[in-house]
Design a protein around this nucleic acid. Sequence first.
DNA 1: TCTGGGGTCCTAGGACCC
DNA 2: TCTGGGGTCCTAGGACCC
Length: 418
Amino acid sequence: MFGLLDCNNFYVSCERVFNPALCQKPVLVLSNNDGCVIARSNEAKALGIQMGTPAYQLKRVIEREKIHVFSSNYALYADMSGRVMQLLESCVPAMEVYSIDEAFLDLTGITQLTSFGRKIIQMVMRGTGIPVSLGIASTKTLAKVANKFAKKYQSYQHVCLIDTQEKREKALRLTNISDVWGIGHRLTEKLHQEGVKTAYDFTCLPRAWVRQNLHLGGLCVWQELQGEKCLDLEQEEMEKKQICTSRSFGEMVTELSVLKEAIATHAARCAAKLRKQNGCVVSLVVFISTNVHRTDLPQYWKSQLVSLLVPSDDTREIVTAALHGLEQIYKQGYNYKKAGVILTEIVAKVPFQQDLFDEKNHEKAFRLMQAIDQINGFYHECKIRLAVEGTGRRWRLKQEKRSLCYTTNWRELIRIRT
DNA sequence: TCTGGGGTCCTAGGACCC
DNA sequence: TCTGGGGTCCTAGGACCC
């Protein structure tokens, strides 16, 4: 059996752990640049606030309902996620960390699944203060369905088990097709045209039709909903095939010098992620774009592929390549809103490969990068950077309501008044 | 004024080869 | 009347996830 454990309103719950006065109150967490809503407390959901709504459209309701609003604080959320995952690891034979707030658990051989589930939930609550819900079923997709019920109906007390045909059918009849994992809005439209409203209706479609019209991905969902296992636990962390770092700017940017700082910073961040998985990059893409929402201003979107002569994981070489790409696509006279770097072709690192004409001291470069990674890793921020990365003063994110990094920064530890 | 950031996988279609 | 057939590789774009 599979379990899907998911943290309730995760980002909001993290804020509440360190600020209990937020409990029972409507709370929102915003995306980077305080752009749109990415997490809501139940109280905020009850006010009808939808995921993804731009913050400026909510100004009035925020004031009227006294909603507490936070900029996202990823350092805090990532650290809290790590604590939850560590606790889970200690009580199941195997697990897959699926996202920052979700994990699939291998529950093979465990009897009394519901009471076991309740114990896990209590343990996470006691250890971290984060409320979680658990769905249990014979496939991952059904465990996802069960998890929705565990969250939605109080009577389950945060654990929902689907272990019989009757329960499975009943759950599928009560699940909208759009709420099924793997069915996005496009497939929902297509299925609505076929008269499919619920997950149960979907399972009644003939296999051949599903294969032909929804292809392999759709067929996998169809099988899993019947209780036929298609997906397994993925335990080892896969190496990324692409690594991307991009950000919108807090304010619009026109000058090349400012874009250079941003691109250099993103490229350096990509390089650090790359070294973490022992990879080297062969080619990368740099892109810049204006603000697509400002239809009153001239628009420009351009990307440039850059190939490195020798695969590299050296921040200096990756940054140089990225800046080279930027110079080829920069055009004066536009207000830029976003820039990014994508490492598109990644290969495994072969230690100190030497080219005949290569005069670089790879051993020395390796030690330098290692030292930088260690120092930056220790401080949870980039203390050591290239000068071209600048200070970010001119393009920094807007984060007006960020809470403190209670668990990762000594200067921001929680203060208790005496 | 103002709308995030990071990924994956699959498929169709074109280019090219013999 | 009649226009081969089969294969690979690459890329762009679409769809999905959190």
